[in-house]
Lab assay of single mutants.
Amino acid sequence: SAVVMEEGSPGEVPVLVEPPGLEDVEAALGMDRRTDAYSRSSSVSSQEEKSLHAEELVGRGIPIERVVSSEGGRPSVDLSFQPSQPLSKSSSSPELQTLQDILGDPGDKADVGRLSPEVKARSQSGTLDGESAAWSASGEDSRGQPEGPLPSSSPRSPSGLRPRGYTISDSAPSRRGKRVERDALKSRATASNAEKVPGINPSFVFLQLYHSPFFGDESNKPILLPNESQSFERSVQLLDQIPSYDTHKIAVLYVGEGQSNSELAILSNEHGSYRYTEFLTGLGRLIELKDCQPDKVYLGGLDVCGEDGQFTYCWHDDIMQAVFHIATLMPTKDVDKHRCDKKRHLGNDFVSIVYNDSGEDFKLGTIKGQFNFVHVIVTPLDYECNLVSLQCRKDMEGLVDTSVAKIVSDRNLPFVARQMALHANMASQVHHSRSNPTDIYPSKWIARLRHIKRLRQRICEEAAYSNPSLPLVHPPSHSKAPAQTPAEPTPGYEVGQRKRLISSVEDFTEFV
């Protein structure tokens, strides 16, 4: 048969007729292969192709491409040299491709048809291009793949890379869960390890502090508590009631339409708007009261037996805890006409967050109470924005700035309102402590230090009264110190430094 060459192609190359033996071998191979691939376009007849790359030819070592076609129900084999250009295909004639002069020997084609199974398996396991790669995943090629499931790999992101949580363990979102698992493993320790309690022994800490320079003076030496005195035992138990972190309780009120001037209507609300609910979820963490331990979680007086509701929101960081007394989460009882059960919590909070959804101005004093010092007013606006402002009593104007209003988005509203309420509550605590000038409020841990110092002074006084020969370590507060001759004046800087060093040991009130 003659071949018409394309323009620009090399000279004529004689194409030899395939021997009958080659056709029989390739026909047997075509019957084993699956003929249901995917359909081509209507211009080209339905056909199945599979590209198999052999590394070497037997005796020649030339890479070839073998295409199996099922045109007219008769499979045909096409061998081509890759750099050459194939002729145009037609549905009426068999596929013809040019070969190099080196394939002119018909014996070479017979060798190609009689490829060993080793070469076929190696060509099938190679990388296939384009559409033949999808075909190689079918059941027909499963014989050339190794048996057994593939090893499982770690989760992959859409980009093909490992997620960040699997790369950096410290930033993994499941870090707290692993800590819980470690605690569970520790709890399952053997009885021999049960006595080993991690941490620092208080006796060891005391020993280090006792021999430090801070205890060089007799006034700073630790003293032993009497065991037989019940009054001192009660004082030590009272110390446990003062937490070592700051605590805040903040009221949250929802004002519906037409309720801006009605205290009873505001306290009777059992739910609010959708934006109000989203605002609550951002204030803190939802907790169930019956599962809380009052000595570990500050509840601000809420009952854990269901008297004040089942849930509330709280927030904490390293040095403070805040609980929100939310009116809509507290039960509304029919027998309580004046809502006294709610007001006994909300009316005693220094700061209230008022979500004013009424469309009218909310005035300070609508919720009557002796300790309502500051109101954080949240007014929802259009386009997911809110107006946040402050209202306070006249005696609080020096501590709280009420002249600045803020426009905040719904997303950042819980954070801004919480921070403003916490700052206002700190100012309210300082303002409330002014009624007792001898006990200015600095912080909870300073209050613990003052309680310890008062307890020490009482013990020293009782020891001096029981044994008059012992001198008083600290003179009583009601006694007057003996007159001392004025010492020589020293520079102001040295006096300030000495006073600062003494105050650092005794108390921190002056620095606050």
Rank of each mutant, 00 (worst) to 15 (best):
D217K: 09
E218N: 08
S219H: 12
S219I: 11
K221D: 15
K221I: 15
K221F: 15
L225I: 14
N227Y: 10
E228T: 06
S229D: 14
S229T: 10
S229F: 09
S231P: 12
E233M: 09
R234K: 12
R234C: 09
S235I: 14
D240A: 06
D240L: 04
Q241L: 07
Q241R: 13
I242W: 06
P243V: 06
S244T: 14
S244Q: 10
S244C: 07
D246C: 06
H248C: 15
H248G: 03
K249G: 06
A251M: 05
A251G: 15
L253F: 05
L253A: 02
L253M: 04
Y254S: 00
E257I: 05
G258D: 04
Q259K: 02
S260P: 04
S260R: 04
S260D: 04
N261E: 09
N261C: 07
S262Y: 03
S262I: 03
I266D: 03
I266H: 03
I266V: 06
I266R: 03
E270Y: 04
G272N: 02
S273F: 01
T277W: 07
F279G: 00
L283Y: 00
L283G: 01
G284H: 05
I287H: 08
I287K: 09
E288T: 11
K290L: 04
D291G: 13
D295G: 09
D295N: 07
K296W: 12
K296M: 05
L299H: 15
L302S: 15
D303S: 14
D303M: 03
D303H: 07
D303K: 14
V304S: 09
C305L: 06
C305Q: 13
C305E: 14
D308M: 08
D308N: 10
G309L: 13
Q310V: 10
F311E: 06
F311G: 06
T312S: 08
Y313E: 04
C314D: 06
W315L: 04
W315P: 04
D317F: 00
D317Q: 03
D318W: 05
D318G: 07
D318C: 09
I319K: 03
Q321E: 13
A322R: 01
V323R: 08
V323S: 05
F324C: 02
H325Q: 05
H325K: 05
H325L: 07
H325T: 04
I326P: 05
I326V: 14
T328G: 02
M330V: 05
P331T: 08
P331A: 05
P331H: 08
P331M: 04
K333V: 12
D334A: 15
V335R: 11
K337M: 13
K337Y: 13
D341L: 15
R344W: 09
H345V: 11
G347H: 15
G347C: 15
N348C: 15
D349R: 04
S352M: 10
D357W: 00
E360N: 08
E360W: 02
D361F: 05
D361L: 05
F362D: 01
K363I: 08
L364F: 15
I367S: 03
I367R: 03
Q370H: 13
F373Q: 13
V374P: 01
V378Q: 01
T379N: 06
P380Q: 00
L381N: 02
C385V: 05
C385I: 06
S389C: 12
L390E: 02
C392Q: 03
K394P: 15
K394I: 10
L399M: 13
L399G: 03
V400Y: 06
D401A: 04
D401C: 05
T402S: 09
S403K: 08
S403D: 09
V408M: 01
R411C: 12
R411G: 10
N412Y: 05
L413G: 01
L413E: 00
F415D: 03
V416I: 11
V416H: 03
A417Y: 00
A417L: 02
M420S: 05
H423Y: 09
N425F: 03
M426C: 03
S428M: 14
S428I: 09
S428T: 05
Q429R: 10
V430M: 11
V430H: 15
N436G: 06
N436C: 08
T438F: 06
D439L: 08
I440W: 07
P442H: 05
K444P: 06
K444A: 08
W445S: 11
I446P: 13
A447V: 07
A447I: 07
A447P: 13
L449Y: 11
L449N: 13
R450I: 04
R450T: 08
R450L: 07
R454I: 07
R454N: 12
R458D: 15
R458M: 15
I459Q: 06
C460I: 13
E461C: 07
A463L: 09
A464I: 11
A464L: 07
Y465M: 15
S466M: 13
N467R: 12
P468L: 10
P468F: 10
L470I: 10
L472S: 15
L472H: 15
H474L: 15
S477R: 11
S477Y: 09
H478C: 13
S479G: 13
A481M: 09
A481Y: 09
P482N: 14
A487E: 13
P489F: 11
P491F: 11
Q497L: 11
Q497T: 14
R500M: 07
L501A: 15
S504V: 07
F508G: 15
T509C: 11
T509Q: 11
T509P: 13
T509I: 04
